Simulated assay, not measured.
Amino acid sequence: MAPAKSLQLAFLLVATLAGATGAAAQTACEKPVYLTVDTGHMGVAPLFADVLKRQNVRVTFFAAAERTQTDGNSLDDHWAAWWKARAAEGNEFASHTYDHVYWRGDEKSVEPRFQVRPSMGALAGRQFTWTAAQYCENITKASDRLASVTGKKPLPLFRAPGGKTSPKLLAAAKACGYAHVGWSPAGFLGDELPSETYSNEKLLAQALDRIRPGDILLAHLGIWSRKDPWAPADLEPLIVGLKEKGFCFQTLRQHPDYKAWIAAHS
């Protein structure tokens, strides 16, 4: 082989190796954050999805059958194609309890029993006492529906509405295969707060200032009570701003606190 040809091949090899090393460095996530998204009225869902695709960000969705602006619920057939598209993009899914069931208290009983109040569905607004099995059934109902509409098995995780739990409730959920996921203090993005006193500008500045590596962030697919919607107004600026500060986005499948649990229960 001619010396010039050998030199050219050697240069190409070095360039290829350097490119591979650079790509690996770019994909390494040294400052991860975990954006989680709960269901809501779904009015911002299409725009939310557009931002995630444009920014190449994967999130973990926690879904309940919540009332929507399309006169149905967020897990009905109207939204099935939307959920399936999010699965195809590599997002993850988990239960938010099917009827968006709030824990209200523990019963004083030998077997775990809980005072609960669904905020959605036929029994919305009424308070009941449920056994651990009944609570687990409602977690599983949302998970099963997600599996049906996405074609992807949800993570063995759940988020209690409002983040309201007790040690007994968490133990009961774990016994039926679900670990609970809350959110970090700085990860509360404020989209449930009144826009009259918490403007999008204020919430964005606060998040960019306070979020730290490892934080679990919380947003929603539409909040009925907020007059000036947080998403998509703050969503893309937040993602861009965090990327500029060296943060990268991962799903809860990659979270160090949940990786082992997911591997053992998937």
Rank of each mutant, 00 (worst) to 15 (best):
P3S: 13
A4L: 15
A4F: 14
L7V: 09
L7S: 08
V14W: 01
A24P: 10
Q26S: 12
C29K: 00
V33S: 14
T39R: 05
T39Y: 04
L52G: 06
L52P: 08
K53I: 12
N56F: 01
A64L: 12
A64Y: 02
T68A: 01
L75Q: 01
D77A: 14
H78V: 03
A81R: 15
A81Y: 13
W83S: 02
K84E: 10
R86C: 08
F93R: 01
H96F: 11
T97M: 12
Y98S: 02
D99T: 07
D99N: 13
P112S: 11
F114E: 00
Q115N: 13
P118L: 01
P118A: 05
M120I: 06
G121I: 04
L123G: 05
A124I: 07
Q127K: 04
T131S: 15
A133I: 03
A142N: 04
S143C: 02
D144M: 12
D144H: 07
L146G: 02
S148T: 12
K152S: 13
L155E: 01
P167F: 05
P167K: 12
K174S: 10
K174A: 14
A186P: 00
G187M: 01
F188L: 04
S195F: 01
T197D: 06
Y198H: 15
Y198E: 06
S199L: 06
S199Y: 03
E201H: 08
L204V: 07
L204I: 13
Q206R: 13
Q206T: 06
A207D: 06
I211L: 03
I211R: 01
D215Y: 02
H220A: 04
K227F: 05
K227M: 03
D234N: 15
D234M: 09
E236M: 10
V240N: 09
G241H: 00
D257K: 09
K259R: 14
A264T: 00
